[in-house]
Write a protein that binds this DNA or RNA. Structure first.
Lengths: 349, 349
DNA sequence: TATGGTCAGTGCATCGTTACACCGATTTCA
DNA sequence: TGAAATCGGTGTAACGATGCACTGACCATA
């Protein structure tokens, strides 16, 4: 069961390995139709599949897309990773998965390792304000697509960003609560040092101000030192927030915008611990619209990210840009987030 | 910024590339301590990292573990994939992720592609009764670790299986409900053609019979043609089951064992649609203990799979067995599942 | 009939690492 | 003391695919 190499194909087709190589690499203009078909049938009959390692060694590239997410343990990232894999498969690539745990140092290490292993396209799900930690590799030619992190002024030119418009998302979520008559609306998040989180927060602030209210008057949760919290623990943030915000009923909010669905669900759980009922006593809205938002009791209102479309965009940017050695400047795509209203938000009694 | 190769290291250390290679491949017995340290410092100073492609081309192997899961979009598999990645990282390997969508043909294709790309160890999360579709590759030397699928009589000898004892799990879950006074207990699942599912079902039956009851008397849900349902749709199965089982109140169950947490949550959602309250009106128990089980309202009783430990076991079997070319027969590890009692199960009123 | 230009395809060096055969210098031991 | 074994290490030929420089054969033009 020895491996079928390009030589075997060449022999079977009665040509030289070089010609087969030309065939494989779309330099087919340089050969007569008959040769082309002879090679084609030889490949089919022998079941030849090019050896990746050899290819990569020769030209220093892979057909692999690197995917760095905070943690696939989190349902949102799991779902996104899944979509990425599907999209990559459609384009004939495989996906190398890395969990950064939101640790910049791990992000850097993964990106560099991937680069040195010949991966030329990486989808990096980060929300760090700066890309300094990977800029060296970008200079060397890495195609970087960031996800969930809109472009920032000092980003390297070639970077492509795919993200929802978090500011608008924050506004839509908050406006929804305002329309329901709520005037004491809290924003619950771990650290908002990340760009997407602060954008959501700004959207929240904008909507509050636009309604003639003052952010300063809103119940405020300063939070735990959120750097302690990875993604899986996002729920704990929500739970802790509920406990703190409702410690004094006089200052408690009637509605809450949570930074994501996991935090929202944790918050709901915290309310339950306090004997409060989501929807009836307190309105809660999350972000992401993970699959569990709809399953929850009560079903969670959420700002949906169109992850299927985003994954497709990210992969095609990563793969297609990677194929031509273009150095045209990157782009920044901000998709519109969609409000999905369910039962966790209700008119103020 | 040219690549640092083994030659550069050799030159810097004043030895031949072969010696550096020997050093790297733990044939250090064949060299004097001084040489060893010279190589070590040279590597550190130059920041040398061996080129994977070249290594792989040379000896036909990778340091990569293949992971084939049904879908990382499902929180359980996402969490498992995460644990696998962590465990692999600790052993210096990377993980190539594939989603089979529970399609045997995709499973086969992925396994073969991985094999041909030099991956020699694969963790396959399948629950197909037979491994015929990948047996060819196993014969050629693939180290296969199956997860969530205990060993079957006709499995190739070298296969290692890691799984919980689903039969016992099914019994424990059912016994818990029986102890709470329930006598009308339904089992809800999509297709139980898979080995783990049927084991859970047998455990359920065993417990029923052991209590002096008859499975035939239990409310039964024949289900949709469950092959239509991927993992993400597991919740839909639960939802549909709730609707059907409670169509006639006279024959409705008072408690339900769901095949996994997603289905259990879907079932809870279905109950809610019907105006029934989980815990109070109907007891529901799931499998897996995904992170959302604890967040749900009410928190879901579940049979926990110790995924961290299982992932570690799977990776170490895959990697360590892969390193020595042993052909010793595989093993089958059945871990004990742990019942986590929460509020979705309650004493029969 | 020279000259030059296409066209279709080939030969060869090369990517970075590794296994194996080999080599000179000591050491061992009968 | 001489033959063999051991030690510490080196030289070289691969692994499979690629792309550049090249070669004949053929055609067109002057």
């Amino acid at each position: 069961m020895a491996r079928v190499t390009i030589q075997h194909v060449a022999q079977a087709a009665g040509v030289s390995p070089s010609t087969v190589s030309n065939f494989l690499n779309d330099r087919q203009g340089r050969m007569v139709a008959a040769t082309r078909t002879r090679i084609e049938t030889a490949i089919a009959e022998l079941g030849y599949r090019p050896n990746r390692a050899a290819r990569q060694l020769r030209n220093g590239k892979t057909q692999t897309v690197g995917l760095v997410v905070p943690s696939v343990g989190n349902p949102f990232w799991g779902a996104f990773a899944h979509e990425v894999e599907v999209a990559a498969l459609a384009l004939g690539c495989s996906v190398l998965l890395c969990n950064s745990e939101r640790d910049p140092e791990r992000e850097r290490r993964y990106v560099e390792e991937l680069w040195e292993d010949g991966v030329r396209s990486i989808i990096l799900c980060t929300s760090l304000p700066s890309l300094d930690h990977v800029s060296q590799v970008i200079k060397e030619g890495l195609r970087l697509v960031t996800f969930d992190r809109p472009a920032q002024p000092h980003d390297p030119e070639s970077v492509v960003s795919i993200s929802i418009d978090n500011n608008v998302g924050g506004q839509v979520a908050t406006a929804h609560l305002l329309e329901l008559g709520h005037t004491r609306i809290a924003f619950v998040s771990g650290s908002i040092r990340s760009v997407n989180r602060s954008a959501r927060y700004r959207g929240y602030c904008d909507a509050i101000e636009a309604a003639g209210l003052s952010v300063a008057d809103m119940p405020h949760w300063t939070g735990l030192d959120a750097d302690l919290f990875g993604d899986v623990e996002a729920a704990e943030v929500g739970r802790a927030a509920a406990k703190d915000l409702f410690a004094d009923p006089a200052t408690a909010p009637t509605a809450v915008v949570a930074i994501n669905d996991m935090t929202a669900l944790g918050f709901c759980r915290g309310l339950r611990d306090l004997g409060l009922k989501v929807g009836r006593d307190v309105s809660v809205i999350g972000f992401d619209d993970i699959i569990l938002a709809d399953l929850y009791d009560p079903p969670l209102t959420s700002v949906r990210q169109p992850i299927t479309r985003m994954a497709q965009l990210a992969v095609s940017e990563a793969v297609e840009r990677g194929s031509n050695e273009s150095t045209d400047p990157g782009s920044s795509v901000l998709l519109r987030a969609e409000l999905v209203v369910r039962e966790s938000t209700a008119r103020l009694a």
